[in-house]
C-alpha cells in the first residue's frame, strides 16, 4: 500500500492544488448541461400551439383615467406551462441523475429542479389571481409601467423562471459558461426582440414571436453545450 505522507513544506500547496483539480474534474463529469436546455426548449416551442389555440379570458375590468384595467388569464397557455414545466423538471432530474450515475458520480441537481418547480407553481398562482396590481402603487401605473416594473413583469413569466432556475444550476455546478449563457438568455427576455415578426398577427399571438426566439436560444445553447461536452470527452 502506498503511503505518501507529506514531509516537505512545498507539499501542502501541491496537495491543495490536487484537491481543487479533483473537485473540478468531478464537476465536469457531473455536467449534463445540454439536457435541461433541450427539454426546456421543447417545452417553450410546445407553448406556441397553446397560445394559438387558446383564448385569453378577461375579468374584473374597471376604468381608470386613460384606459381600462383587466385581469387577463389564458387558461390553455397558463395550464400548459404549469403542467409542462413540472413534468419537464421531473424528467430533467431523472435523466440528469441517470447520465451522471452512468459516469460514476452523483449530481447535485435537486435544488435546481425544486427552484424550477417552485417558480412554475408560484407563477401559475400569481397569474391566476391577477397579481399584477400588487407590484404597483396605483393600478393606473399598469397602463404606463416604469422600466423596473416592466423588467419585473418580464422576469415573472414562465420563460423568466426558466432563466432564474438556470442561474441556480450554474451556481450548483460552478459552471461559468452556463452562467454567461443564462445572463444572455435573461437579456433576451428582458430586452424583447421580435425582428419585426408577428407584428401583423395581432393580439396575443405577438407573444409567439418571443417564444420562437427564446426556444431557439435554448436549443442553440443545448447544441453548443452538447458539442463542447462531446469534444471535451473525446480529448
Amino acid at each position: 500500500m502506498t503511503s505518501d505522507t507529506v514531509p516537505a513544506a512545498g507539499d501542502p500547496r501541491r496537495l491543495l492544488a490536487e484537491v481543487r483539480g479533483f473537485a473540478h474534474r468531478v464537476r465536469l463529469t457531473q455536467r449534463v448541461t445540454w439536457l435541461p436546455l433541450l427539454v426546456l426548449a421543447l417545452v417553450t416551442f410546445g407553448a406556441i400551439p397553446a397560445y394559438m389555440l387558446g383564448r385569453p379570458v378577461t375579468r374584473d375590468c374597471y376604468s381608470v383615467e386613460g384606459g381600462e384595467i383587466c385581469k387577463i388569464w389564458e387558461p390553455a397557455a397558463d395550464l400548459y406551462w404549469l403542467v409542462a414545466l413540472v413534468v419537464a423538471y421531473v424528467v430533467i432530474a431523472r435523466v440528469y441523475l441517470r447520465v451522471a450515475r452512468g459516469r460514476g458520480v452523483d449530481a447535485r441537481v435537486l435544488p435546481y429542479v425544486l427552484t424550477g418547480v417552485a417558480f412554475s407553481v408560484v407563477m401559475f398562482v400569481l397569474i391566476g389571481v391577477g397579481a399584477g396590481v400588487w407590484f404597483v402603487r396605483d393600478a393606473e401605473d399598469l397602463l404606463h409601467p416604469s422600466t423596473s416594473i416592466e423588467v419585473l413583469f418580464r422576469l415573472l413569466t414562465p420563460v423568466g423562471g426558466i432563466g432564474i432556475a438556470l442561474l441556480v444550476l450554474a451556481w450548483l455546478e460552478r459552471n461559468v459558461a452556463l452562467l454567461l449563457f443564462t445572463l444572455g438568455y435573461l437579456a433576451v427576455i428582458l430586452v424583447p426582440i421580435n425582428f419585426g415578426w408577428g407584428v401583423h398577427w395581432g393580439g396575443h399571438l405577438q407573444g409567439v414571436t418571443a417564444l420562437i426566439i427564446v426556444g431557439g436560444v435554448l436549443l442553440l445553447g443545448s447544441a453548443g453545450f452538447g458539442l463542447a461536452q462531446r469534444l471535451r470527452r473525446a480529448r
Binding site: 473537485a23 464537476r27 458520480v105 452523483d106
Partner: peptide
C-alpha cells in the same frame, strides 16, 4: 485525501 475530495464533490462515487 483524493478519495474524500472526490466523494465529497460527487456525493456518491463509483
Amino acid at each position: 485525501l483524493g478519495i474524500l475530495t472526490i466523494a465529497h464533490e460527487a456525493r456518491r462515487v463509483e
